[in-house]
Design a protein around this nucleic acid. Sequence first.
RNA 1: GGCGACGUAGCCAAGUGGUAAGGCAGAGGUCUGCAAAACCUCCAUCCCCAGUUCGAUUCUGGGCGUCGCCUCCA
Length: 493
Amino acid sequence: MTLRLHNTLTGTKDVFEPLDDSHVRMYTCGPTVWNFAHIGNLRAFLFYDLLRRHLQVAGFRVTHVMNITDIDDRILDQAMHAGTTIAEYTKPYAEAFLADMKTLRAQPAEQYPRATEHIEEMIRMISTLLERGNAYVADGDVYFRIASFPRYGELSHLDREGLRAGVRVARGGRGQKGSARPAHGGEAPPIRQDRYDKESVSDFALWKKSQPVDEEIGAAWDAPFGKGRPGWHIECSAMSKRYLGDTLDIHAGGVDLMFPHHENEIAQSEAANHRQFSRFWLHSEHLADATGEKMSKSAGGFTTLRDLLAAGHDPIAIRFFLIANAHYRSRVRLSDEALHAAGEQVRRLQDFARRLQQPVAPKDGGRLAERVAEVRHAYREALDDDLNLPQGMGHVFDLLREANAALDSGGVGEAAARELLLLMADVDAHVDVVTARDMALAGEVEQLIAQREAARKARDFATADRIRDELRARGIALEDSKEGVRWRRIAKV
RNA sequence: GGCGACGUAGCCAAGUGGUAAGGCAGAGGUCUGCAAAACCUCCAUCCCCAGUUCGAUUCUGGGCGUCGCCUCCA
């Protein structure tokens, strides 16, 4: 089977092979911890999770590095405002990010390097760029000289002439976005402007000269070119080199990072290392809010994982929605209805897996085992085709219906059951929601079920229904079936 | 203004040059003490117009609409 991934660099789905036979080096852009991650951020992070999981399924060993940006203009402004250091200010948000990832069952990356812990590496790279003439100092700041890197713009296919025109042109007819109010953390901080004493307006900062306050909040470092702090882009170039070497197999991020962030990373890294920076570039699409517009941390209201959990959504359903509802390269809109649908799909998967635990029929009826093998193959092919999990799940649910029907009529024997369990394991290797639930049976629940069964046998349905209602009020639903009583957790009414 | 993406049933969504997966919601039914679950049945001609083709939702052109990027952004 051949894995194909959509490579922004070429604009096509390319066959993926790592540089080393079986080892994939992957760098993904992580959060800037100036606030809680919102669901749109988390969509991108779960896309990375899906990617790394499928690379593993495809037989590769994966070294995955995801940065945590703990220095940035917004962080500086917020820390200053709060009268604390950037380290103190970012700590809870960095912790919240890791906690959110755990809640959403993302496999941890091998490394989560923080920008402030890799200043030395950044200084070294900036020094190299200065030596080579790819960077210059202007009034204590250091800028990358885009004119020294002719390939600039190749990733995002932006016209250099257009860029040189410089200023962002007002978009016709669209409303002002900046007026919306953030749902968390008060007003979005004002953005510091780069000073424009650079050779070209599109040159970007590698290093920014300290201002007096920067030292007070722990955001100033000594460097050969003057005391200051790193620009935004250099951290990824420096940290990916430190942990993964000069050439990455995969670099991923949200589409909004394509330009300028990734373009700038390429310029820095390739100018400094004289090697291709990343062989594959993968970009995930945005999550839109209820109005259909991109959810954005600084532009307007946004929804955090905490908000959704507080509203009663199951983290497992949220995970499933974010990775399986739509393909990673298509826009998706957050809605209660879609979240509920995802929850129902998860429930179906879990219920089905549960049924498989029960004793099977003496022998298979029909050609179910064959069908399951077909579906396993189709599922794998969908994932190999640029991680098309939504399509893969379509095949799976199709089969679920057939298999449930076979189960109803006692037509699932050992061979089919074994194959079905393999399929569920295939699926769970990506979605990781099937066996995710808390399987621990409270003894008390079991006892109540036994009492109810006794009452039912005695045809005392009033008592039986009372017990069932009590459990339901506690968030446990009972289902009577031929194989006995099943129970599952549901949302409390 | 430049570059780009998208527009598939009430909602979400996959997809193909040969008459459209899957999920949610809804309707009817089987099963059941009742209920739930499961299963069965029903529910779209793919934004509009023109063209290419034996045949287009899928290709080309135009239009309308929505959205993204153009140095805060996953």
